[in-house]
C-alpha cells in the first residue's frame, strides 16, 4: 500500500520548501502519510525517503521513535486514556478499566470491527480537567463512565463526524503562505547579518575615560 498520492506529493514539496534542510520535513511528511492512510505504511516511508533525499532506514529510524506514528493499522478512532498523576488521583485508572470493558479490548488492542483502538497514555495536558481522554487527539474533559458510553454511541452513529475526523488527521487547517509574502527559509550557510539589524546598528559602547 500507499505511496503518497499526486496531491499529497505536491503538498509534500510545498512543506519541504519551507525548511532550510529537507530532512526537517520528515515528521510533517510522516503525518501526511498517516493522514492519507490512517497509518504509516512501508511504501509511504520509502516514498518519503525519496522526496526528502535520505535512506529508507533513516525514515524508519525517525518514525519508530515517535509513539503517534502507527506502523500497523489501528482503529478509525484512537481512544487515549490518561492515567498519569493528576488523572490517577481522580479516577483515570478506573476510567481506563471502564473503557476497556465497554469496548471489549485491553489497552493496546483494536476492536474486531476496526472501529476503536484503546491506549493507556501519558499526560495529555488537561490536568485540571481530570480524568480526561482524547479521541483522535480531540479532548474529552472530566469523563464519567456514562459520558464515555454516550461518546461511543455518538461515534458509532456518526454524530461526531464533523468534530472528530478519522485517525491520522490532526489539524484540518493547513499553514498557507501567500507567494508574495514568503520571506524564505534561512540557509544555515552563507547568511549575513539580517537587514533590520544592519540598518539599525546599536551605538558603540561609551568609552571609559
Amino acid at each position: 500500500m500507499a505511496r503518497l498520492s499526486p496531491d499529497n506529493v505536491t503538498l509534500a514539496r510545498e512543506i519541504i520548501a519551507r525548511y532550510p534542510r529537507p530532512k526537517s520535513a520528515l515528521i510533517p511528511l510522516l503525518h501526511l502519510a498517516q493522514e492519507q492512510d490512517g497509518w504509516v505504511a512501508t511504501d509511504a516511508m520509502e516514498h518519503i525517503a525519496q522526496l526528502v533525499g535520505v535512506s529508507p532506514a533513516e525514515v524508519i529510524g525517525t518514525c519508530s521513535f515517535y509513539e503517534m506514528f502507527k506502523r500497523e493499522p489501528v482503529g478509525t478512532y484512537l481512544v487515549n486514556v490518561c492515567t498519569n498523576i493528576s488523572c490517577l488521583l481522580l479516577g483515570g485508572e478506573e476510567l481506563l478499566e471502564h473503557v476497556e470493558h465497554t469496548l471489549g479490548v485491553r489497552a493496546g488492542g483494536t476492536t474486531p470491527d476496526g472501529s476503536f483502538t484503546v491506549e493507556d497514555v501519558e499526560c495529555i495536558a488537561a490536568c485540571t480537567e481530570a480524568p480526561c481522554l482524547q479521541v483522535n487527539y480531540r479532548y474529552r474533559h472530566r469523563v464519567t463512565p456514562e459520558g464515555f458510553d454516550q461518546l461511543v454511541e455518538d461515534l458509532r452513529a456518526g454524530r461526531l463526524a464533523e468534530e472528530i475526523p478519522p485517525h491520522g488527521t490532526l489539524a484540518r487547517i493547513r499553514q498557507r503562505v501567500p507567494a508574495e509574502r514568503v520571506a524564505g527559509p534561512a540557509s544555515p550557510v552563507g547568511g549575513g547579518e539580517p537587514a533590520w539589524l544592519a540598518s539599525r546598528p546599536a551605538p558603540p559602547p561609551e568609552k571609559v575615560k
Partner: peptide, 9 residues
C-alpha cells in the same frame, strides 16, 4: 517566516 511544525509523541 514562522514555520508551524508539530511533533509525534
Amino acid at each position: 517566516d514562522i514555520v508551524l511544525h508539530w511533533g509525534a509523541g
